[in-house]
């Protein structure tokens, strides 16, 4: 069984973790086109490359980020999400009419 290094808890069996999908930037839901939104929700590049992913250490409820190569399945690094997300996110008011 594979192991992964949790930034909070250290090296653990992969069975202690829950995959949370790729880190993706959400387009502005109130101004993007339907296609942009559909791409965000449904599509993934699925390339053989390094991907940045969400992982949860289930026993401690701790979310973190892992960079993993999809070809070799090697986990290159893991780190606290505050590296990527440090500022409060606000959403703008919806446009009166959303155009596709």
């Amino acid at each position: 069984m594979k192991m992964m290094n949790c930034p909070l808890n250290g090296l653990r069996n992969i069975s202690e973790f829950v995959h949370g999908g790729e880190v993706k930037e959400m387009p502005d839901p109130n101004s993007c086109s339907d296609k942009e939104w559909a791409d965000y929700v449904f599509f993934s590049d699925n390339a053989i490359s390094v991907v940045t992913e969400w992982w949860l250490h289930a026993p401690s409820g701790y979310w973190f980020i892992a960079e993993r190569h999809t070809g070799s399945d090697e986990i290159l690094k893991t780190y606290d999400p505050s590296v990527l997300f440090s500022e409060r996110v606000e959403f703008s008011a919806p446009a009166t009419e959303v155009k596709a």
Binding site: N9, R12, N13, S15, E16, H57, A58, P59, S60
Partner: peptide, 12 residues
């Protein structure tokens, strides 16, 4: 302290 899985349930 280890926060981990014991007998398939979460435990501290």
């Amino acid at each position: 302290i280890a926060q981990t899985s014991v007998a398939r349930i979460n435990a501290i």
